[in-house]
Computed example of a mutant assay.
Amino acid sequence: MIMNEKIKASEVQLIGVDGEDLGFVPTVEALALAKKLKVDLVCESLMSSPPPCKLIGAGKAKQEAMQERQQARKREQAPKTKELRLTPHIEDHDLETKRQQAGRILQGGDAVQLVVKISGKEGAQAKALLEDLVKDLSAYGRKQTGIQLSGKQASVQLDPL
């Protein structure tokens, strides 16, 4: 990002503080206007001639650039998978707590792996419990895989919308 005196072009296409087009202006005049309004002159792109420049509030340009970098870094990171463990005989209050926790995780952009530990003939109960949870969390995420019953656990993974 090129700002103020670092802009070497002789003429710039100037965009005002409120987004209005001020036309083609010599760089010296644009800098004088920026100082008069107590704002920064920021060059958006050097690819065109004359380069488009904006009048942006002092310090706001750096803040916007920093936010843009943070967003790009956040998009690069792969979503994490967080695991929530349950039992088929879970109390209603505890189930509600797990449901809220899963909703928060999905809203945060991470995937949730719901795992129900089973023993004996609790497979049907565990599957019904997971189906209810998936239905309740459908506003926040969708199933990546079906409900998988394997040995001592039943699980399903929900990906954020």
Rank of each mutant, 00 (worst) to 15 (best):
I105H: 01
L114V: 07
L41E: 06
G123R: 08
L37I: 05
R73L: 15
R69P: 08
K80G: 01
P50G: 13
K121N: 12
D94N: 06
L84H: 03
M47G: 15
E76T: 10
A72R: 11
G103L: 01
A58I: 10
K127I: 07
R104Y: 04
V39H: 00
L84R: 03
P79T: 04
T81I: 15
S49F: 15
A102K: 00
G109A: 06
L31Q: 08
T97I: 13
E68P: 06
V115C: 00
E96R: 07
A111R: 07
A58K: 15
L33N: 02
I90M: 10
R75K: 14
C53Q: 09
Q67P: 03
K98H: 07
Q70I: 15
K82L: 14
I118D: 01
I105M: 02
S119G: 11
Q67D: 12
C43Q: 15
A32E: 10
M66E: 15
R75A: 14
L95W: 05
R73W: 07
Q113G: 00
R69T: 12
S119L: 08
G103Q: 04
G57F: 11
E96K: 09
G109P: 03
E44P: 03
G57S: 13
M66Q: 14
A58D: 11
V115N: 02
L84P: 02
L84Q: 02
K62E: 14
L41H: 04
Q100G: 05
H93W: 08
Q107P: 00
P50K: 13
S45D: 15
K35T: 07
I105T: 03
V112N: 00
R73Q: 13
L106D: 02
K127T: 11
E122G: 02
M66Y: 14
E91R: 09
Q100Y: 05
D40K: 07
V116R: 00
A32H: 05
E44K: 14
I90K: 04
T97G: 01
K36H: 09
A102D: 03
D94T: 09
S119M: 08
E76G: 09
L95E: 09
R104G: 03
I56Q: 03
K74Y: 07
K80S: 11
A102F: 01
D92F: 10
R104F: 02
L33T: 10
V42E: 01
H93S: 12
E83S: 14
A65F: 05
I56W: 03
L46F: 10
L86D: 05
L41T: 05
L37C: 01
R75Q: 13
A65V: 08
A61E: 05
A102M: 04
A32Q: 10
K54Y: 14
L31T: 04
G109S: 08
R69Q: 15
E68M: 12
A32G: 02
Q100R: 13
T87W: 00
V112I: 05
S48T: 15
A58H: 13
Q100W: 06
E83Y: 06
R69A: 15
V39R: 01
Q125R: 06
Q107E: 09
